[in-house]
């Protein structure tokens, strides 16, 4: 239980750091550490597949992409933020933590234990045979992402007539 609490606190702290830190490289690394901690939490909660995806994709691949992108940008575009804007996130975070704590405290004993539902089986079976529609939607999300990149990073073109 103590390890779990330490991991959860670490997750919240590193997630907050990812937003608060002004240095983008440090922010990206904080996010990677946060998702690494989340991956460990998934392992401890007996969700090894979710943990593998979290660590390999979010902590690994996405961090590499972030750092590559940051390395390709130049200094000089920093925007100075007003003090009020800087304060907004910490205030919101503290408020959220207080409300979250109160709600969870009142819910803690009241959420019934998970009954064994029909949606169980091996990972492959669940993914391909029970959650097939999610794969179709996943294809849709990836397609939308690819098309969004095509649309937003396009060169302005002079459309010629057919």
């Amino acid at each position: 239980m103590a390890i779990q609490i330490i991991l959860l606190c670490g997750l919240v702290i590193f997630s907050a750091l990812a937003i608060l830190l002004r240095d983008l490289i440090k922010a990206a690394l904080s996010l990677a550490v946060a998702s690494l901690l989340l991956g460990i939490i998934f392992f401890r909660l007996a969700a090894p597949y979710a943990a593998v995806f979290e660590i390999s994709v979010v902590a690994g691949l996405i961090t590499v992409l972030f750092i590559l992108t940051i390395a390709l940008t130049k200094k000089g575009d920093e925007i100075t933020e007003a003090r009020l804007v800087k304060l907004a996130f910490p205030v919101f975070l503290i408020l959220f933590l207080v409300i979250d704590g109160l709600v969870m405290k009142s819910l803690l004993q009241k959420i019934p234990a998970l009954p064994s539902g029909p949606e169980s089986g091996t990972f492959g079976e669940v993914l391909w045979k029970q959650r097939t529609f999610d794969l179709v939607a996943q294809v849709g999300v990836i397609l939308a992402g690819v098309l969004a990149v095509l649309a937003l990073f396009r060169k302005k073109e002079e459309d010629k007539d057919e």
Binding site: D134, A137, Q138, V141, A144, L147, A148, L152
Partner: peptide, 15 residues
């Protein structure tokens, strides 16, 4: 699946 298709429509709409 409702959540996933919600995201499909949303990602396309951001772009």
């Amino acid at each position: 699946s409702v959540y996933l298709f919600l995201e499909v429509a949303a990602v396309a709409s951001y772009a």
